[in-house]
């Protein structure tokens, strides 16, 4: 499954990094602790978080994350968006909370 498929099926908003919508999604990871993501997320994961600052892009890029999804209607900072465009890693958004989004994403990836 690709990032664009997830965007469509879960009705997510695309904030930035649209050039990366064809990235392949392998799995997902939910965490707001950056060291936890650094230590435990895997390449090709979609990362669900409420953090919006630029460092999430540094982590996403270093870990080859497929896309970031911000929950609860949060929006990425401007510097975060610029970095996302550069790295071509999409940042998407939803009004759902992490629990609900993770459940839906899990179902989608495992169906």
């Amino acid at each position: 499954m690709k990032v664009c498929d997830i965007k469509e099926k879960l009705n997510l908003t695309l904030f930035c990094g649209g050039l990366g919508l064809d990235r392949v999604v392998e799995n997902g990871y939910v965490s707001d602790l950056l060291s936890d993501v650094m230590g435990n997320a895997n390449e090709g994961d979609v990362w669900i978080t409420l953090q919006t600052h630029k460092n999430i892009m540094a982590v996403a890029s270093l870990k080859d994350i497929a896309a970031i999804i911000l929950v609860k209607g949060l929006k990425p900072d401007e510097a975060t968006m610029a970095h996302s465009e550069e790295e071509q890693i999409p940042i998407l958004g939803t009004t759902m909370e992490a629990f609900e989004l993770a459940g839906k994403l899990y179902k989608l990836l495992n169906s």
Binding site: L33, L34, S35, D36, M38, G39, H53, N55
Partner: peptide, 15 residues
């Protein structure tokens, strides 16, 4: 910001 969880040095050691 999501830093300072006390995982930095352990992550360094592991890796």
């Amino acid at each position: 910001m999501g830093f300072g969880a006390g995982m930095g040095l352990p992550n360094i050691k592991k890796n």
